[in-house]
Design a protein around this nucleic acid. Sequence first.
DNA 1: CGCCTCATGTGAACGCTGTCAACATAGGGC
DNA 2: GCCCTATGTTGACAGCGTTCACATGAGGCG
Lengths: 215, 215
Amino acid sequence: MWTVSTPGRAHRTTYHHGDLRNALVEAATAAVRAGGPAALVVREIAREVGVSPNAAYRHFASHADLLATVAAVARRDMARAMLERLAGVPGGPRAAHARLGAVGRGYVEYAVAEPGLFRAAFDGAAVAGPPGAADPRDPHPDPWWLLQERLDELAATGDLDPDRRAVAGTTAWAAVHGLAVLLVEGPLAGLGAADREAVLTDLLRTVDEGLTARR
Amino acid sequence: MWTVSTPGRAHRTTYHHGDLRNALVEAATAAVRAGGPAALVVREIAREVGVSPNAAYRHFASHADLLATVAAVARRDMARAMLERLAGVPGGPRAAHARLGAVGRGYVEYAVAEPGLFRAAFDGAAVAGPPGAADPRDPHPDPWWLLQERLDELAATGDLDPDRRAVAGTTAWAAVHGLAVLLVEGPLAGLGAADREAVLTDLLRTVDEGLTARR
DNA sequence: CGCCTCATGTGAACGCTGTCAACATAGGGC
DNA sequence: GCCCTATGTTGACAGCGTTCACATGAGGCG
């Protein structure tokens, strides 16, 4: 039924596609991965999938809707990458600090590795945030949630003041997110790998020591 | 010569405007202030100023060029707000920590007060960053530079390890910038003033303690 | 087996955008 | 007082998101 002639271009023999929604999301994700949120143009995606521009509107209410879907995909992908990092660190209370670092590192390194998707993931209001807070057993874990779990661990070991626990989640997230943003689309975009590593290490250390400091 | 009929709409009696560039920047800044970078549409700005769309192209190479100009204005405005905060804190080595906090607070609070301008200020590559580093005596001080000066002070008092000084600037900036971004366009956008204050206080404390911790 | 419904796709169109090329105007230096 | 040139205008083009009316055909029902 479906064959790809030109790479990225498709033509079809049937009137109905059969899996248009998925195909659109896939093509849109590829576009965003390559060029960021601004690179997502509905007509272009439809062209690539080999369908008329309006066909997309049978599956997505608008350009923003499609972009929001890509953002959700990106957040899942990011969480997956973070989970991989986390798997490399042992469990148990002794390694709680190391796990916090791993999650933070995963966050920033994903942003650097996939700048387009990262920018889409936290774009506009299409973001599921802390207000509602996700279900911990969500089959699609959220980057934010992965971070909060680490802080819960730290609070459980007594290294993080419980009174500070609530607000600490935001503090840690802000630090890591800020570095990611500056590295991806901000003035730090030109940094070399070595400098990036130095900065990331220092930031993770600062957050860890700052959050668990006793004076 | 120039009269404003409808607010924001202008008509003129002379063929030449006389101060078009400034008028365009002003109108564009107002648009961005109200609706963020996406709200800047060249034709609309020209309409508001009472001029044909293409007249703008005599003063700006492109839409991106005009937006970059607005971004520069926004960064200056932000630095101005930060300087005001800074003026409220005494000089001298004793208050170096307080001055760092004041600058960080000014950064975040400006972002919250002027979300549209803040988003434009750090949009894309139109940003003068640390690589080149601005002249300290720049008549238009940069938010980044104001932060770096505080860290220099802290290093001078001995509270900040000199070996750490270089990278600490980025760490501190990342933390503050990250919180600003999350509050302005991220998932923390819905936070109330009290929660915002609590989070900001904790973040500033974390950065200060984390950067100057001795273990 | 055949029909009919309705989800899914198409075509043409609207208004908007950024941008270009050719032309109009008039202010300031000789 | 005249012309040069910076500045502003008109008209056009391609591409965008989105809508409306129509086409197609896969799947449920008799």
